[in-house]
Amino acid sequence: MKNKKVIITGGLGFIGSHIIERLNDNNDIVIVDDESSGKIENIKHLDFSKIDTTLGSINSINLEEVFEDCDYVFHMAALTGVFQSVAKPLNSNNVNITGTLKVLEAAKNCEIKKLVFASSSAVYGDTKSLPINENDQINPLSPYAVTKATGELYCNVFSKIYALPTISLRYFNVFGPRQDPNSQYAAVIPIFIDKILKNKRPVIYGDGEQTRDFISVKKIVDANILAAESKETGAFNIGLGKSTTINQLFEIINNTIGSDIMPIYEKKRPGDIKHSIADISKAKSFGFDPDYDFKDDLMDTVEWFKNNF
């Protein structure tokens, strides 16, 4: 992607900042972020001469003024996390559903070429069908999952009724540099790395034999750009297409760091699914094919945490 004007909502966050990092050299970037979880430090190493930042909530700022004359919207802004949504479902609904609707409305009115929506594999719930296919019935088991499923439905409606091209990417378990291990709702990989580096015992909920499809944020960025530039619309799984148990993940990180620390096992959390692995064959229609071993990217992530935490 070159010589475009690109909106990234949630651009100061984990995934958003990586998209900006990739596009910064050859495009004009417009960031919309309320700094609730993202932070300016995530992009401090970039060239700010081609970045325009609007700080504020997608529910309160005038999005049409911000979106004017832009080409693409990458809608990453959200209250993320299953357990955060269980604790505060109204907050998740306000940001993830009402906020998404406002982003779509502004994109329609500004005649955006395409909107890429960050959805989640959480929409599937605890499906027994593996690997998970886009044709499988969705079964959200948390308020967060409901908000992402609703966002997808709104995207489809805006594509069909208003001719706004949209595509929803159902991320599986994303990891990489700049994930915050100190958040109450942090993902498992940064928590494991942070705890082990500090010689503390991480917690594994359940027996640790639950599986996840871990995908590097670098591959997530690939998927977003490919999806934006494609003619495809609808929902697509974005994962590695391989599964790893939480116990295996812990062992890999432990060995990479050179530690022999043992985890603490606690009871399963509400809303936590047992198994997850993506069928990514549909996403290959727009060129997404992450054929790699995630261990190399995991090692890079460990090195980043060593240098930054």
Rank of each mutant, 00 (worst) to 15 (best):
I8W: 11
F14K: 06
H18G: 00
I20D: 00
S37C: 12
G38R: 05
I40A: 10
I43T: 08
I43H: 07
I58E: 10
S60H: 15
E68H: 12
F74M: 03
A77G: 03
G81L: 02
Q84T: 08
N96F: 05
I97N: 08
T98A: 13
T98P: 00
T100E: 05
K108H: 04
L115D: 02
S121H: 01
D126Y: 07
K128A: 13
N139F: 10
A145T: 11
T147L: 05
E152G: 12
T166V: 04
T166P: 07
I167E: 00
S168A: 13
F175N: 08
P177I: 03
P181T: 05
S183T: 06
Q184L: 12
I193Y: 00
I196T: 03
K198S: 14
K200W: 00
G206L: 02
G208A: 02
I215A: 06
I225T: 02
A227G: 02
F236Q: 04
I238T: 11
L240R: 14
Q248K: 15
I252K: 13
N255C: 10
S259T: 13
R269M: 14
I273A: 08
D279P: 11
D279A: 07
F286I: 14
D289N: 15
D296C: 02
L298C: 00
M299K: 12
E303S: 11
W304E: 04
F305W: 05
F305P: 01
